[in-house]
Design a binder for these strands. Structure first.
Lengths: 117, 117
DNA sequence: CAGCATCCACTACGATACTG
DNA sequence: CAGTATCGTAGTGGATGCTG
């Protein structure tokens, strides 16, 4: 049953989590304050454009805060808000499911060979 | 910290939930067995192509089963597997988050000044 | 009824180069 | 360091028409 007052609450949440690097990005931020370059290295082949896009989107949704420390060289820190921290149960539920299903579910569950990444 | 044995479990789950109508589709299926046309009407402006795509994807992931009842006219039923049913806690977590944040989070959080939470 | 085939529009993402 | 600007590409979803 869906709360009538909030019919597509789930979609709203999903909207926040959507995007190619969002989950990994949040995972990093759950571990504490991070700098732009730090995230970039951690997410490895992510482009600066995409990383910025994700960060801005999360900012708009009130999930992360951006803090600029003036000076040269630049220093910017990203940190989860309280609201962002509260997303953790969702991650926990996802992880729990994946683990309970065993085998980490290979991306190609129903096939023997993979062709899509 | 992430389970080292399953580093991107969350991504795997997200991969299943991804796609434009997946969440609403699953929401419908949580309510019981559904027929193609039934889902199509419920998801309203969804195209048959997309609905089929989602259904097939979920089938491949072992989330739903497709049952064909031969005869004319055709009769096909879709139903969640046990594996699919176990996704519910994830939905519950998402819904809980959205509701705890109040206001169902309008898609345009940052547009107007929603200083009141 | 329950799809499949085809074409098309859109947009998300990546690569690259440049700037305060 | 932390981005922005621009461009190109690939994938994703929609519209439509046809079929078992």
């Amino acid at each position: 049953m869906i709360d009538p007052a909030c019919p597509d609450a789930i979609e709203s949440v999903f909207e926040i989590l959507d995007g190619k690097w969002t989950l990994l990005l949040l995972r990093d931020l759950f571990n504490g304050v991070k700098r732009f370059g730090e995230l970039r290295r951690s997410l490895h082949p992510i482009s600066p454009k995409t990383l910025t896009d994700r960060l801005r989107m999360l900012e708009e949704h009130g999930i992360v805060t951006r803090t600029l420390y003036p000076g040269v060289p630049l220093h910017v820190e990203y940190e989860l808000t309280e609201r962002g921290q509260r997303l953790q149960p969702i991650f926990a539920a996802m992880r729990a499911w994946a683990e309970s299903e065993g085998t980490c579910l290979n991306k190609k569950t129903a096939e023997s060979h993979s062709s899509h990444a």
